[in-house]
Write a protein that binds this DNA or RNA. Structure first.
Lengths: 347, 347
DNA sequence: CTGAAAGCGCTTACAG
DNA sequence: CTGAAAGCGCTTACAG
């Protein structure tokens, strides 16, 4: 049994295929009464427009692409992407757009995927994630003339549309809070170097520490994985002048850091305060619950999707600033234990 | 500048469009020398076949669909799906198949999505996740005649292909291990009731406990979320005869349970042993690291993808048993603390 | 407001 | 082994 086409509808309605097309797409060219008749028939016989035929006739593919360059195991534990994707999805499916997903190994493969998708007319636009400083994907996408929304910035996005958040403001709020609690020895465990938002945060951290006159602060690079977060934390907590507060660039590393503190017999928050960047439900599943920088990731994804659809529709390219993450204090931060007075033997 | 088509290649090569098509697709009908010439030209001018045109000519869509019915926040913290997807992806992209992803609210919407995708010829097949007992999606997909691989089973999959793992064997291994350690009061915190694998595990747990003569065991239903896992754990640990060992149906609940134990001043594993089902990297990021039921989820996804491609190719429908999860003992399990001898007043 | 027709870029019998 | 042609199911000017 063949699936119904507009020809079937046209035959049943006694009109031309063109009329059916106009009726189905809400175009002028048919009277309201025939439009209703046509729609009723379409519904009755379970008609779905063949997306290939539609795409071939110059219309859009009604799909957008998302290529992710992260190893499988990392992707799984990082709640960020699934939340982002679900926000993107909500917006896309409301407009009957499909999301095509691909996990890639490196930048060159990623660019090749974009080129192929676009060449095959499989998609109408793409999201660019994990923006890096001087990202080679940006000029490649510009050259392809492929509608794109960069999830990241500001800057380094060329002529592409972008959506970004103020990393600096969030970091300043966090550091000022820790300083207000009495912390001086604050270390930040940074995300993957080279990623734009990592670099922005690193610079902002250096800057705010200088402004506040803190001279025992620093950023230690890491890579967002729990394993590496644990390793770095173990090293930091083993040092002579160990920090009293740690800021982690994501929640997975923060959770790993908390476990290391427990493993080393340190009490959180009495001996060590911990702040997590990104506030997935994980932060509230550990004990003590983690103070975190929260923001609505699904909403971020939805905004990105809306801007990509606008870019596809030909709207002018813009850069959009999303909500700034705000500090949500929980049980992992407190004033540092007062330094014990020097023992006689130490004098 | 228009994107190149086979007509452009045909003109440059001085052959017909048909010849180009044969050459590109490795079909007989062109000599080896012209095939090479055509391929060289295609490469040179950066040709990509228009997937819409290809699909319209009766070929396949070269895409498969995956609809996920879980709330955004749950999806984000559950590492299982991202790992599954990355395994699926690896297999699909090796064969130039795209993955179309959609997050849906309920079963009816999900079925509607399948119907639309299939009607629009957007996909050649789908994965069915989170199989339930007497799942209404199964007959719907059978009726659509849409190539499907059910991720779950055995049973309840109708005439659809499926891939499943032996939940019972894994559960038996776990219970026997805990009993060998000396545990008698074992409680299992189950996943969402109604999901087939939840029900299979529940029945298997009852069965093995009966066989081993354990009469202080039970399953408490939950929903896979950390919040609910924490709530249930708090209640269990507050009861008079609290269990000495807990088996959680996923790792997120296990981690939440561990935090609750810590919050209530219980020592893991001395006062309480914990086993997590599914061994994502999260299990090793907490302290103590969790004993877990491990299996290779990306491999599971890859197998599922391979079977879906086979089903699309028209291979006979089969049910495939994947690797059984195996117990990976870590720091969260130990013999229970010996019960203190009854105090005189209790006699 | 409606109908007839061309065309999107492929694939695939069908002749030579 | 190769070429000319029909056809997939839509959309969209172009006539009436």
């Amino acid at each position: 049994m063949k699936r119904p086409t507009i020809a079937d509808i046209a035959r049943q309605a006694g009109v031309s295929k063109g009329a059916v097309s106009y009726a189905l797409n809400g175009q002028p060219g048919v009277s309201e009464s025939t439009r209703q008749r046509i729609l009723a028939i379409a519904r009755e016989i379970g008609f779905n427009p063949n997306s290939a035929a539609r795409a071939l006739s110059g219309a859009t593919a009604n799909a957008v692409g998302l290529a992710l360059r992260r190893p499988a195991r990392t992707l799984g534990v990082e709640p960020f992407f699934m939340e982002l994707i679900s926000g993107v999805e909500a917006e896309l499916s409301a407009r009957s757009y499909a999301l095509t997903l691909q996990i890639v190994a490196d930048a060159q493969t990623e660019i090749a995927v974009y080129r192929r998708w676009w060449g095959e007319r499989r998609i109408d636009g793409v999201f660019l994630c994990d923006l890096r400083v001087d990202d080679e994907r940006v000029p490649a996408l510009e050259e392809l003339n492929l509608p794109t929304v960069v999830i990241g910035g500001p800057g380094h996005t060329g002529r592409l549309a972008s959506i970004w958040a103020d990393e600096e403001a969030a970091l300043v709020e966090t550091v000022e809070y820790l300083v207000a609690l009495g912390h001086r020895r604050i270390t930040r465990i940074g995300g993957l170097p080279g990623l734009l938002h990592t670099e922005i945060r690193t610079e902002a951290f250096t800057e705010v520490c200088r402004r506040l006159g803190l001279d025992q602060t620093r950023t230690v690079p890491s890579d967002y994985t729990g394993e590496e977060g644990a390793r770095v934390t173990r090293r930091l907590l083993s040092s002579a002048e160990r920090p009293t507060a740690l800021i982690y660039d994501n929640d997975v590393m923060a959770i790993a850091g908390l476990a290391v503190a427990q493993e080393m017999g340190l009490s959180v928050p009495a001996d060590l305060s911990i702040v997590a960047w990104d506030d997935s439900p994980l932060c509230q599943l550990v004990h003590p619950p983690l103070t975190a920088l929260s923001r609505d990731i699904p909403a971020y994804g939805a905004h990105a999707a809306r801007r990509l659809l606008a870019a596809i529709a030909g709207d002018p390219i813009t850069s959009y600033q999303d909500e700034t993450a705000h500090l949500t204090p929980r049980g992992s931060t407190a004033p540092p234990r007062p330094t014990p007075p020097p023992t006689p033997s130490a004098i």
